[in-house]
Amino acid sequence: MSSKSFADARHYDLIVAPIITEKATLASEQNKVLFKVSKDATKPQIKAAIERLFDVKVESVNTILRKGKRKTFKGTRGVQSDVKRAVVTLAEGQTIDVTTGL
């Protein structure tokens, strides 16, 4: 197994999914893309993974840790999972089409 394929597998583990919401669409007009990421991912790891997977230049990464909410569904109480999101600001002229997938 080459080191490149190992690095790619690690990058795929960090980036869970793109976030496609109305707010994320508005942010895309400012060269920002939102991703759901692993809870233990750091900003430098997220930056390296995005640059490697999508072949773009990343200017900055901001992270948000949303705590899970308590919900009741049909009388059963539960807790949603904590979610970590990354707001990735791309360099001028760079784009990521999240609708195509990886």
Rank of each mutant, 00 (worst) to 15 (best):
Met1Arg: 07
Met1Pro: 06
Met1Gln: 08
Ser2Val: 04
Ser2Leu: 13
Ser3Val: 14
Ser3Leu: 12
Lys4Val: 12
Lys4Glu: 15
Lys4Phe: 10
Ser5Gly: 08
Ser5Cys: 09
Phe6Tyr: 14
Phe6Asn: 15
Ala7Arg: 10
Asp8Gly: 08
Ala9Met: 14
Arg10Ser: 15
His11Arg: 15
Leu14Asn: 13
Val16Thr: 11
Pro18Phe: 01
Pro18Tyr: 04
Ile19Leu: 12
Ile20Met: 09
Ile20Ser: 04
Thr21Ala: 04
Glu22Pro: 05
Glu22Cys: 04
Glu22Lys: 12
Lys23His: 04
Lys23Met: 00
Lys23Ser: 05
Ala24Met: 06
Ala24Thr: 14
Ala24His: 07
Thr25Ala: 14
Ala27Gln: 14
Ser28Arg: 09
Ser28His: 11
Glu29Cys: 06
Glu29Ile: 08
Glu29Asp: 10
Asn31Ile: 03
Lys32Cys: 13
Val33Glu: 07
Leu34Pro: 01
Phe35Met: 04
Phe35Tyr: 05
Phe35Gly: 02
Val37Tyr: 06
Ser38Cys: 07
Asp40Cys: 07
Asp40Pro: 04
Thr42Lys: 13
Thr42Asp: 12
Lys43Pro: 00
Lys43Cys: 02
Lys43Ile: 04
Lys43Leu: 02
Pro44Leu: 12
Gln45Thr: 03
Gln45Leu: 05
Ile46Arg: 04
Ile46His: 04
Lys47Ile: 00
Lys47Pro: 00
Ala48His: 11
Ala48Met: 11
Ala49Met: 10
Ile50Tyr: 03
Glu51Trp: 01
Arg52Pro: 01
Phe54Pro: 01
Asp55Asn: 11
Val56Trp: 01
Lys57Tyr: 14
Val58Thr: 03
Glu59Arg: 09
Ser60Gln: 12
Val61Met: 07
Asn62Ser: 14
Thr63Tyr: 10
Thr63Val: 11
Ile64Asn: 09
Leu65Cys: 06
Leu65Tyr: 08
Gly68Asp: 03
Arg70Gln: 09
Lys71Ser: 05
Lys71Thr: 09
Thr72Arg: 15
Thr72Glu: 09
Phe73Thr: 11
Lys74Glu: 11
Lys74Ser: 08
Gly75Asp: 01
Gly75His: 00
Gly75Arg: 00
Thr76Lys: 09
Thr76Arg: 06
Thr76Pro: 01
Thr76Trp: 02
Arg77Cys: 01
Arg77Asp: 13
Val79Gln: 11
Gln80Thr: 10
Gln80Asp: 07
Gln80Trp: 03
Asp82Met: 02
Asp82Ile: 06
Asp82Tyr: 04
Asp82Trp: 05
Val83His: 11
Val83Ala: 09
Lys84Ile: 14
Lys84Gln: 13
Arg85Asp: 02
Ala86Glu: 08
Val87Asn: 07
Val87Ile: 13
Val88Tyr: 08
Thr89Cys: 03
Thr89Pro: 02
Leu90Pro: 02
Glu92Trp: 05
Gln94Cys: 08
Thr95Ser: 11
Thr95Met: 11
Ile96Arg: 00
Val98His: 00
Val98Tyr: 05
Thr99Gln: 03
Thr99Tyr: 12
Thr99Val: 02
Thr100Asn: 11
Gly101Ser: 02
Gly101His: 05
